[in-house]
Amino acid sequence: MRSKLPTLRPRRRYVAFFLNSEKEPQARELMVEIHSIQASLMGDLGTARNRLKLIYFDGHFGILRCSHDKIQDTRVILAAVHSINGARAAIWVKGISGTIKSVREKYLPRLDKMNAEKDGRRIELDEVSGCIIYIQGCEIDLCPDDQSRIKGSDTRYLGLTSYDLYGGLDDANGTSDGL
């Protein structure tokens, strides 16, 4: 005998998202932050009606399960993520679909690993200098020598692009990471 009648099965949606963070968080840390925001914004009742579950997370891309009639609430919760475990973070929703298979096919890039680079190279410009922390596509995160440059912006690094340094790359038009 079935434990649940098919007509009583809850309808779900799967949200694919991209996490941009200064430090790669664990899945548990991410869910602690999401649940904290959900409880704060929606209350106990709203949380009970929209049980969020992390289906997949690789450090950057993830899939979150939510109720089919609470998509707007889920968007708000993900948009309200400000920092995870003390490091600045932002979650950008890539898309929403009805099955895990379709959300994977449509919105998750077929990259096993992000094209990240961390080699301790330096940038020396007239206006700014410091160590390169992270390079992905044409995006560059820089730890400035002069820490007063990041004062008041809540972040640890300066966000630059290759356009700032040497006029850009031909293939760096926003699609180089497969998004």
Binding site: L41, V76, A79, A89, A90, S153, D154, G159
Partner: peptide
């Protein structure tokens, strides 16, 4: 926004505005 961490997509911003 003061950094790219502060940016939100138009749909997310609309959802926040509705809240």
């Amino acid at each position: 926004g003061k950094s790219h961490f502060d940016l939100r997509s138009p749909k997310d911003l609309m959802a926040l505005a509705q809240l």
